[in-house]
Simulated assay, not measured.
Amino acid sequence: MLDRTNPGADRKAILYRMVMPGHTCPYGLKAKDLLRRSGYAVDDHHLTTREETDAFKAKHAVATTPQVFIDGERIGGYDDLRRFLGKPVADPKATTYRPVVVLFTLTALTAMAASYAVSGTPFTLKAAEWFIAFSMVALAMLKLQNVESFATMFLNYDLLAKRWVPYSYIYPYAEGLAGVLMVAGALNWLSIPTALFIGTIGAVSVFKAVYIDKRELKCACVGGSSNVPLGFISLTENLMMIAMAIWMAAAALGYTAPHAM
């Protein structure tokens, strides 16, 4: 009998996966790698044609490949194998902050790297300014990958977009343009009011939807296909734009350090 309390004890597994001239199943490769890393010797069977694959599915009454067998018992596909080995299986519908954590981490590191290249140290005021500007550009890029999907999600909560639908398409372009101009320190007369305008409307919209109306929505901040919950992150995005616009306006009027953008 298969010892489910100690999955690696049997140390042998049979794997059936698709390996065709035009297609190698990625989940089959992942299952094979996972089995080997878990200490199993893998008897790797390739399904090399569509007919062979269909016949295998019909024989075992399964809808997909790969399929893993251990000690004569069918474990199932890649996700089933992960469960059998006691490993977590990601829920594609689960809410997560991972996209924004990754984005802000990389833009912060990029800003510090740029600062180091220019001034020899990553910890400068310019690095902080670039972090906000780089983040705006990266966020705009994610939205513009599928602007239709973004606009649809954005219309759920943005106050201006609800009144004037074209704004839901304009927003990511405006955010990206303002970010690029802020990196360059160019055309402040355009970047500052643009960031201040979209940031203020965005902040008010998010605050109303989440903290006043108590609505549970997905955030469009990293694109329309994300599962990031609307709330603190989107509010932070807009507050960052407002802060950057005010900082640059103050710099232009001579109220901040002379090296500011």
Rank of each mutant, 00 (worst) to 15 (best):
L103M: 08
V89M: 08
I132F: 04
F84N: 00
Q145K: 14
A133E: 01
T64A: 14
A111F: 03
T124P: 00
L142I: 01
D71W: 10
A133Y: 00
G77C: 13
L159D: 12
P88F: 05
T121C: 05
M112Q: 13
F69S: 08
Q145L: 15
G77R: 11
T107G: 06
E73R: 13
T152A: 15
I75Q: 01
R74N: 14
A63S: 15
I70K: 04
T121S: 14
Y116L: 09
M141E: 02
F84W: 08
T64N: 11
A90P: 02
E129I: 06
R50K: 15
K93W: 02
V101C: 07
L144M: 14
L142H: 00
G76L: 08
F56K: 13
L106K: 08
F131W: 11
L155H: 11
A108T: 13
A138Y: 03
F84G: 01
R98C: 02
R74K: 14
T124I: 06
A113E: 06
A55E: 15
F104I: 04
A61L: 15
L81C: 09
A127N: 07
E52N: 11
G76F: 04
L109C: 04
A161P: 07
A58H: 12
M112V: 03
M136T: 00
L106R: 04
R83N: 14
V101P: 00
T107R: 03
A61G: 11
P66V: 09
V62Y: 07
F56A: 09
E51Y: 07
K143R: 13
Q67G: 06
A117V: 09
L85R: 09
N156W: 07
M141Y: 12
V89I: 09
A63C: 01
A138F: 12
L106W: 08
L159Q: 14
F131H: 01
A111G: 02
A58W: 08
S115A: 14
T48W: 03
F150Q: 00
E52W: 03
F84I: 05
P92I: 07
R82F: 10
L125M: 13
L160D: 01
H60F: 15
I70T: 10
P92H: 08
F154Y: 14
F154E: 11
L160C: 06
P122E: 04
L142W: 00
A55I: 08
H60G: 10
A111K: 01
D71I: 06
W130H: 02
G77P: 12
R98I: 10
L160E: 02
Q145N: 10
V100I: 12
T65A: 15
T53M: 12
H60Q: 14
F104K: 00
F154P: 01
R82T: 06
A133D: 05
F131Q: 00
A61I: 11
